[in-house]
């Protein structure tokens, strides 16, 4: 179960803070869900966000425990504190969602995303793209005489920054995985 380990002593309800925190400030939260890996579960989670009008900034999902048929879904969402609490409570109602964790409030967490960028260009632009990729520790995973594909891993902000820099240098295509996140420490 170590792949799933989120926090000692945590329960399915640990994310609920039922004391009200009503304010108008929009907050960004990263939620980690442990779900039964059945074919409908992703549709249930996405349908909940769509049906109730909540935001999804990013969403990743993959099976993390093959014997237990458990998947982990990481959702980044924004909303007022009340909406965030409602999202967690609504997710907790889904029968095939076993645990809901708000990594933003449960402690400090590590967030990582992988992205691949295709940059098309010649001459100086190419040299500059390579130089910046080096600074961002992006790897070249494909190359032609007129293009590169870079692979970069990092916090979403770092990937945004890299994309901003690549845009004037011939950024042609981007594919991003969305955020995977874990709480720090044990």
């Amino acid at each position: 179960m170590s792949a799933l380990h989120i926090k000692e002593g945590s329960t399915g309800h640990s994310a609920y803070n039922l004391r009200p925190t009503f304010s108008d400030v929009q907050e960004k939260h990263t939620l980690a869900l442990l779900v039964e890996n059945d074919p409908g579960v992703l549709a249930r989670v996405i349908g909940l966000f769509a049906g109730r009008g909540y935001n999804i900034e990013s969403l990743t999902v993959a099976e993390v425990d093959h014997t237990g048929h458990l998947s982990r879904i990481t959702v980044v969402t924004t909303g007022t504190p009340q909406v965030i609490e409602q999202i967690k409570a609504q997710l907790g109602r889904i029968v095939s969602v076993y645990e809901v964790h708000d990594l933003t409030v449960e402690g400090s967490s590590v967030e990582r995303e992988l992205a691949i960028f295709k940059v098309v260009g010649e001459g100086n632009q190419r040299v500059e793209a390579l130089r910046l990729a080096d600074i961002f520790r992006a790897n070249v995973v494909d190359s032609t005489l007129t293009s590169f594909i870079f692979e970069i891993t990092g916090a979403p902000e770092k990937i945004d920054a890299f994309a901003d820099l690549m845009r004037p240098l011939g950024l042609a295509e981007v594919a991003r995985t969305g955020v995977a996140a874990l709480l720090r420490g044990v």
């Binding site: 309800h13 609920y16 039922l18 004391r19 009200p20 009503f22 009340q82 609490e85 409602q86 409570a89 609504q90 907790g92 109602r93």
Partner: peptide, 17 residues
Amino acid sequence: IDPSSINKVIRIDIPIV
């Protein structure tokens, strides 16, 4: 019994699930 009913529309001072 449903945590999502609490604080959904009205602010609650004493929530009991």
